[in-house]
């Protein structure tokens, strides 16, 4: 039985996705062999696609953001905003990505600012 067009495209997508993740997140991917990274990417894609993300660009855009969050973000109540935005039925994929990026930038900035700079002990 030959490989279908969809399977070929999926294979190419995963290959490019893995390369992107290795380039963008070298520290996080260093300890992962290709099999582990591939499964992690596919799991992330499945998670993302469950919220209505369909195209390669939209899916990878959100996977990229997920990699910037702590691994336990799904169980961490501090990151409840991720699920809240993803579940919003009135937003399409690009609006969800934009909202998540804005929320992430603000959340991460607040978290970073609590690390000593504001009492003059940092820097």
């Amino acid at each position: 039985m030959g490989i279908t067009k969809q399977e070929l495209e999926a294979e190419r997508f995963v290959h490019r996705g893995m390369r992107y993740l290795r380039e963008t997140f070298p520290t996080e991917t260093k300890a992962m062999d290709d099999g582990v990274l591939k499964n992690r990417l596919i799991n992330d894609c499945e998670f993302v696609m469950a919220y209505g993300f369909e195209t390669e660009r939209d899916v990878m855009g959100l996977v990229d953001l997920l990699w910037r969050l702590p691994e336990d973000f799904k169980a961490n109540p501090d990151y409840g905003w991720v699920e809240e935005i993803l579940s919003d039925k009135e937003m399409d994929a690009s609006l969800k990505t934009e909202a998540l990026q804005n929320a992430y930038a603000l959340f991460a900035a607040v978290a970073e600012s609590g690390k000593g700079e504001n009492d003059g002990t940092e820097l």
Binding site: E7, E11, F13, V14, C45, M49, E54, T55, R57, V59
Partner: peptide
Amino acid sequence: FSSDRKISLSAL
């Protein structure tokens, strides 16, 4: 990554 091409969940 393509902004048009959809990914097949079953293929993944």
